[in-house]
Design a protein around this nucleic acid. Structure first.
Length: 907
RNA sequence: UGCGGGGUAGAGCAGUUGGUUAGCUUGCUAGUUUAACUUGCUAGAGGUCGGUGGUUCAAAUCCACCCCCCGCUACCA
């Protein structure tokens, strides 16, 4: 029956909730399937949310805004676990704040990802036999946009599967009109201020991608290499040599000096003389520079300013020529004579051979060294001197650092501060020009007549200096991170300072992985300060990497990646989300285990079934008029616990402790609510005579609804489905976040239930130890001399049956009528007896009591030891001392009862 | 090289403004199949909190030193 209805409604209107349709059909709606099936509801609920515009935020001055800007995924990308984690965290925060009544905006968009996309499109074209250059710039860009139109939306759709409540109506792209305007605005402003300049400095060059790359894109990896020792002859002194050591002999062609340390006595007399550069026979000077380490190698270093960053600096200090010996593909250029056209490895081999023949090769040693490689293609990066555009960093780095130092910008976890400072303290100018086509073209024109550089927002018609119309735009595009750096404000309309920008900016929290702190976070911070005068956000919440079950990074080459979409298909988005959030602290890496996904799925099912149980019973009484005064001990206990949970969870979430909050909700709902409270309440629901049934149902529903609300940010789908079935409200995601209230604090009832729980546990424990099957019901005597304790047991008699399989519960003041060989558990303030005459093993019982006696004696010794120590009594806080005293008293009393019991048994 | 993270039960992780009997998930053992859930329920075993020393009435937590693993960062050409 249900299945037929399901299909029917899905066909007529996916966007409407189950409840409405079923009500229309006049069928009992308050029922759920026996097991939770995420795939049956997720799509429908998501469509409903979108249709109702719940994700959409408009400027509303009556509400406080809360804004998160989504790190834009690459248009080439496919959803991976990192995205899933990142976006789950953001969605949790956004849903939480939205329910708290904030005007929550989660601003989404995608990134053109310059080099990543260009490389991918080139590959794609190559498969069709087309080379990039065949198409020309315009033709290539046309293909690139086609690619974007076809694949750019893929990852967005995947994010939706996760349940992301981003405002898709506001979706942006880093190369849309607004972002282009922001990019040119920033470029021209920085240029006018002198913060952007064009310079010939040594930079990182990828010979395969044929573009410059920034320092951040270079990955250093250790490689096995060699140390070649080569003799350079001293000019005019036959038979005298300076021995240098190098790992890159092929760069010898570009040497313009040999450097030694000024303090090095071995070389003092030779500084200022000239050497004959072997193979080339060019004369080069010997210079003194403290950069050289006397202890390392031979203490004499060949200096190749055009091909090594350190040598470049030395060259600047000593006015050395920069001789570029390489083409853009790293082969030796025309200056290389016979070595022209060889790649560096061929040239190295040939030159080493030639040096050997000349008798100038002294020795070759194996040597491990770090080699810079391009993070995209793993190609060895060549340091090359080329004219490139740079952003001057020194000035802009200062306020960015201060913001964190002053606490205006909070990084979570705090240890990230050090990494942040460290990078800013050592920051170098940012190379922003790329020899690529896919990206923002640099808004600079060169006058072909007078050489003037014109940087302008609009295409200039004539040269500002000589009026020539013969202008040519710079061929280069900008580093993809240049536009990403503006993302928090460019997406809100900047440079047009409109309503959206005015209201939603600055944003609140940025959620991202620690791996892009340098690429992105820092650049957003200084760009925002420079352009808007404000920080882009007040908090950065970092997360770690999702690794495989062996702790390895998930990667394509290892084939160990787990597709979040596969997880969602099999277990549901809620299970994936909860798994990614729990058991993990901010900034720490985590491992992915299918077992953990299963545990989360089980939790969703548990909540589902608890809800089913409540719905099955909800018709049994009218709960409209239930007042707090109608609640029983157990009801007040769970209400009070719920109330505390609301407070704790809200506090944790406000501190961004999402994993801790999720854990607390999980434990409360599963253990306190399902395993204890629902079990306590069952006898009341089953008993037609019970006058507190309405109170029980009221409590069940209230606690469930509040629990669902707290859980909703973590598990949006299952909570929404249950909520809509259980209540008449439209959606949980626009319902109010629960608030802590003193009215629901019932300390005495909490304490009473603790006593009951201890009694129940004790009975269960005995039953297990005595091997009493649950089918064997028992009579239980609860004996206590204290009135209030007896009252508690009397008030809770009914549920001992379901909790501890007690058939008959007798509460009395003393042991009258209880057989001597009854099994007993001594609690504080009470003794529980179970007269299982036929099952009791006296010896076993004595053994158990002896164990208990020893434990208590240990505790008493510990507590009395502490209290006997004047230092503790004097120095520890009074409350702590009181606590210890109370414990000591409790243990002492309990011990007396245990001893008495042992005496009874003749031990 | 500098900075940082981690070392807690078989596995994976929480927990540290110092303060009850160190938690959670999973796995294991035993029991259970009770009118929401076998994706359940109950009980249990399993830990010298990496090591050594110190501070303190009290240390997984603070300090010092050491050992192992992992990041980032830089480098010796």
């Amino acid at each position: 029956m249900n299945i037929v209805i399901d299909n029917y409604f899905i066909e007529i209107n996916r966007a409407q909730s189950l409840l409405y349709i079923l009500e229309d059909l006049n069928i009992m709606a308050k029922e759920l399937e026996k097991t939770y099936d995420p795939s049956a509801i997720e799509g429908r609920l998501y469509d409903k949310w979108v249709a109702n515009k719940y994700f959409h935020a408009e400027v509303d001055r009556s509400k406080k805004p809360f804004t998160i800007v989504m790190p834009p995924p690459n248009i080439t990308g496919q959803l991976h676990m990192g995205h899933a984690l990142d976006n789950t965290m953001q969605d949790i925060l956004i849903r939480f704040k939205r329910m708290q009544g904030y005007n929550a905006l989660w601003q989404p968009g995608t990134d053109h990802a310059a080099i990543a996309t260009e490389v991918k499109i080139i590959e794609h074209l190559r498969e069709q036999g087309i080379e990039k250059d065949d198409l020309g710039r315009d033709g290539f860009l046309k293909r690139a946009w086609e690619w974007k139109d076809e694949y750019g939306g893929r990852i967005v759709n995947q994010l939706k599967k996760l349940g992301s409540s981003a405002d898709w109506d506001r979706e942006r792209f880093t190369m849309d009109e607004g972002n282009n305007a922001a990019v040119t605005e920033v470029f021209t402003k920085l240029y006018d201020k002198g913060y952007i300049y064009k310079g010939s400095r040594i930079g990182n060059w990828c010979p395969v991608c044929q573009t410059s790359i920034s320092d951040a894109e270079v990955i250093h990896e250790e490689q096995d290499g060699f140390f070649w020792h080569i003799n350079y002859p001293v000019a005019g002194e036959e038979g005298r040599f300076v021995e240098i050591a190098t790992t890159r002999p092929e760069t010898l062609l570009g040497d313009t000096a040999v450097a030694v340390n000024p303090e090095d006595d071995r070389y003092k007399d030779i500084v200022g003389k000239t050497l004959i550069l072997p193979l080339v026979n060019r004369e080069i000077p010997v210079i003194a520079d403290s950069y050289v380490d006397k202890e390392f190698g031979t203490g004499a270093v060949k200096i190749t300013p055009a091909h090594d960053p350190n040598d470049f600096e030395v060259g600047k200090r000593h006015n050395l020529a920069e001789i570029n010996i390489m083409n853009d593909d790293a082969t030796i250029n025309a200056l290389g004579g016979k070595y022209e056209g060889m790649d560096p490895y061929e040239a190295r081999k040939a030159m080493v051979k030639d040096l050997e023949d000349l008798g100038l090769l002294v020795k070759v040693e194996p040597h491990k060294h770090m080699v810079g490689t391009h993070d995209r293609c793993k190609t060895t990066v060549e340091p090359l001197v080329k004219p490139q555009w740079y952003v001057k960093m020194a000035e802009m780095a200062k306020p960015a650092k201060e913001a964190v130092e002053k606490g205006e910008l909070k990084l979570i976890p705090e240890r990230m501060n050090k990494t942040y400072y460290n990078w800013l303290d050592n920051i170098r100018d940012w190379c922003i020009s790329r020899q690529l086509w896919w990206g923002h073209r640099i808004p600079a024109w060169y006058c072909q007549d007078c050489g003037e550089i014109i940087v302008s927002k609009d295409t200039p018609c004539t040269c500002t200096k000589c009026n020539s119309a013969n202008l040519k735009q710079d061929e280069d595009t900008l580093d993809t991170w240049f536009s990403s750096a503006l993302w928090p404000f460019s997406t809100l309309g900047w440079p047009n300072v409109g309503e959206d920008y005015d209201y939603f900016f600055p944003t609140d929290v940025l959620v991202t992985g620690y791996d892009i702190i340098f690429f992105w976070v820092i650049r957003m911070v200084f760009s925002s300060i420079e352009q808007t005068g404000r920080l882009p956000f007040h908090t950065v919440l970092f997360h770690g990497l999702v690794r495989d079950d062996q702790g390895r990074k998930m990667s394509k080459s290892l084939g160990n990646g787990i597709d979040p979409l596969e997880v969602i298909d099999k277990y549901g988005a809620d299970a994936l989300r909860l798994t990614l959030i729990t058991g993990n602290a901010p900034g720490n890496d985590m491992r992915f285990y299918w077992e953990r996904i299963e545990a989360s799925r089980n939790f969703a099912n548990k909540i589902w079934n608890a809800s089913r149980f409540i719905m099955m019973n909800i018709e049994k009484a009218d709960i409209k008029d239930v007042k707090l005064s109608d609640l029983t001990l157990a009801d007040k206990w769970i209400m009070s616990k719920m109330n505390e949970l609301v407070k704790d969870v809200t506090e944790n979430m406000e501190k961004y402790e999402l994993g801790i909050a999720a854990d607390k909700i999980h434990n409360f709902l599963w253990e306190e609510f399902c395993d204890w409270y629902i079990e306590m309440v069952k006898p009341r629901l089953w008993n037609d005579e019970d006058s507190t049934k309405a109170a029980a149902l009221y409590t069940l529903k209230t606690v469930l609804v509040n629990g669902l609300k707290l859980l909703h940010p973590y598990m949006p789908f299952v909570t929404e489905e249950i909520f809509c079935t259980l209540t008449d409200e439209e959606s949980i995601m626009v319902s109010d976040w629960p608030v802590y209230t003193e009215e629901l604090k019932f300390a005495a009832d909490e304490n009473a239930v603790d006593i009951i729980k201890n009694a129940v546990r004790a009975i269960r424990n005995i039953r297990t130890e005595m091997n009493v099957p649950p089918s064997k019901k028992a009579t239980v005597y609860m004996v206590s001399a204290k009135n209030e304790i007896r009252d508690i047991f009397n008030a809770s008699k009914s549920f001992f049956g379901t909790l501890a399989y007690a058939e008959n519960v007798i509460v009395q003041e003393d042991k009258t009528g209880i057989a001597d060989d009854a099994v007993s558990v001594v609690l504080h303030d009470a003794v529980v007896y179970m007269p299982f005459a036929e099952l009791v093993d006296v010896a076993k019982e004595i053994e158990r009591l002896k164990k208990e006696e020893a434990r208590l004696e240990g505790e008493i010794k510990r507590a009395s030891g502490m209290l006997a120590n004047p230092k503790f009594v004097d120095k520890a806080p009074a409350a702590k001392v009181e606590e210890e005293k109370a414990k000591l008293q409790k243990y002492t009393e309990t011990l007396e009862q245990v001893k008495e019991r042992l005496a009874q048994l003749g031990a």
